[in-house]
């Protein structure tokens, strides 16, 4: 199963997600980008039911963009997160709920703070300093309990992220072959290789 994790640090949020798209025991694709860029300072990593992830993430992407066009400014991370959570919570009690788990990483340009929200398919949402979804989360969360520092500069944050990826590679029975890593900070969103 897919693994995605994210950490915050001094003025940034890093979101990482593996790039494998699998069906049953077969790898179908190894360069799938699961991290959507919702606005200039907002990232969303989606995992879950394959069709639902695409449908839901595009729905969110378009609605966030529509808000931006209509009102001439971007929703701040907390407002976007609240809206996305509500969409999932409403979907949960519909005939066919989306099964999509999310990590929302953003940078609030008004308060100059990084934000990270852990959201699951039920519409559960909480703001956290670090978060993970998927089987990898069982290894990564305990590792981050020990090594995460919310005030760490970017290099240290990336070093901790490397540790997480190595740990998943070491312990998880199916090793994700590659990760997409995106950073959001005051300058906006950028993708990096590690």
């Amino acid at each position: 199963m897919e693994t995605s994790f994210a950490i915050t640090g001094k003025g940034y949020t890093i979101v990482a997600s593996d790039t494998t798209a699998a069906r049953s025991i077969v790898k179908m694709k190894v360069d799938e980008d699961r991290i959507k860029v919702l606005s200039s300072h907002l990232l969303m990593a989606c995992s879950g039911e394959p069709g639902d992830t695409i449908q839901f993430s595009e729905f969110v992407e378009r609605n966030i963009r529509l808000f931006q066009i209509r009102n001439n400014y971007s929703l701040k991370p907390s407002a976007a997160a609240a809206w996305i959570r509500r969409s999932l919570a409403q979907s949960l009690r519909s005939r066919k709920p989306y099964s999509v788990n999310l990590l929302l990483g953003g940078y609030d340009t008004t308060s100059h703070r990084p934000h990270l929200y852990w959201v699951d398919y039920l519409g559960t949402m909480t703001e956290v300093p670090f978060a993970a979804h998927g089987y990898g989360s069982y290894f990564v969360l305990s590792l981050l309990d020990k090594y995460h520092d919310p005030e760490a500069p970017l290099e240290e944050g990336l070093a901790v992220l490397k540790r997480c990826m190595d740990e998943v590679a070491k312990r998880l029975i199916v090793n994700p072959s590659a990760y997409k890593i995106k950073i959001v900070d005051k300058d906006g969103v950028r993708e990096i290789e590690l």
Partner: peptide, 8 residues
């Protein structure tokens, strides 16, 4: 209710 923030 939708955005958990005051209306602009």
């Amino acid at each position: 209710l939708s955005y958990d923030s005051d209306i602009p």
